[in-house]
């Protein structure tokens, strides 16, 4: 029922969106709105914040309180929103370069604070908006316009990075596994703390073309063929897992949430001398 979702959660007057044909971002954006629908969140209390890049155009199409910020800074803006008004459900959408290169510092510290933000990283392994430069998520030896001879940087694993930095809920889905994304986003929103969902998205225009990955369908087929659920992976050997990636819930360890901890300070000070 996409049209009902569009009526309810999209700013129809601002559609169609700017993404290229075959881009996975629209599917992931839809998957997020399905999560919001299933949770029955009050749109007036939902805030969607983004940085800069292809993914970061998503909030503009969504009928919530939406903020398109500066490159890499979405989590810092979102932190201010959430701390100032903890009643808001704050969802953050960033790209791979946006979140882990220019925004890398904000990313690890938002994870560390365990502030209640649900962050979805649209990972298309490339800087799409600027025309296909390699990002910290471009696999080693893959090509970008700034890696014409192959990328010699080692990529991050965003989920490992988030877990290590202290995120209390972490999961991964893909634009092929849109239902997984919806389920993870739901759980992320329900987690009272910092949640990170990596959503692998296909960029046929730049990443796909530069690396001869075929068209949009081929790229989705690749997601289907190489994703392994956490449950399935538990029964597989390291050899069988070679070149595969995990999808599903990777971490769920609730800890005290930042804005609630701050509220305790305020409450404890009540009645004390100034």
């Amino acid at each position: 029922m996409p049209s009902q979702l569009v009526d309810k959660y999209f700013r129809a007057e601002d559609l169609p969106q700017i993404w290229c044909p075959g881009c996975g971002h629209g599917i992931i954006t839809r998957a997020i709105t399905v999560a919001i629908e299933q949770l029955g969140l009050e749109p007036d209390k939902v805030c969607v914040v983004s940085g800069i890049g292809c993914s970061s155009r998503a909030p503009g199409y969504l009928d919530f309180n939406t903020l398109h910020t500066t490159h890499g800074r979405a989590l810092a803006f979102a932190t201010g929103i959430k701390l100032a008004n903890p009643d808001l459900k704050v969802i953050v959408i960033m790209g791979d370069g946006d979140s882990t290169a220019i925004g890398g510092n904000h990313f690890i510290h938002a994870c560390r604070r365990n502030i209640d933000l649900t962050t979805i990283i649209f990972n298309n392994n490339i800087y799409g908006m600027t025309g296909g430069q390699y990002s910290p998520l471009t696999p080693k030896f893959d090509k970008g316009t700034t890696a014409p001879y192959g990328n010699i940087d080692r990529p991050f694993d965003i989920c490992d990075l988030a877990s290590g930095a202290g995120a209390t809920y972490v999961g991964r889905g893909t634009s092929y596994h849109a239902n997984v994304v919806t389920s993870l986003v739901k759980k992320g929103i329900m987690n009272d703390g910092f949640s990170l969902i990596e959503a692998i998205s296909g960029c046929p225009t730049y990443y796909g073309r530069k690396n001869k990955k075929g068209g949009p369908v081929d790229m989705m087929q690749w997601q289907k063929d190489n994703a392994v659920t956490v449950t399935a992976a538990a029964k597989m050997t390291p050899e069988q897992l070679e070149g595969k990636f995990l999808i599903g819930e990777l971490k769920n360890k609730p800890e005290p949430e930042y804005t609630k901890e701050y509220q305790k300070i305020i409450d404890n000070l009540k009645g004390s001398d100034i």
């Binding site: 914040v49 309180n65 903020l67 910020t69 500066t70 800074r73 810092a76 803006f77 979102a78 932190t79 201010g80 929103i81 701390l83 100032a84 008004n85 808001l88 510092n105 904000h106 690890i108 510290h109």
Partner: peptide
């Protein structure tokens, strides 16, 4: 915040809530 950029960013975000 974690740096100066985040300091002003958080202040701007908070301002949007009133």
């Amino acid at each position: 915040m974690e740096d100066e950029i985040a300091g002003i960013a958080a202040a701007i975000g908070a301002s949007l809530t009133g």
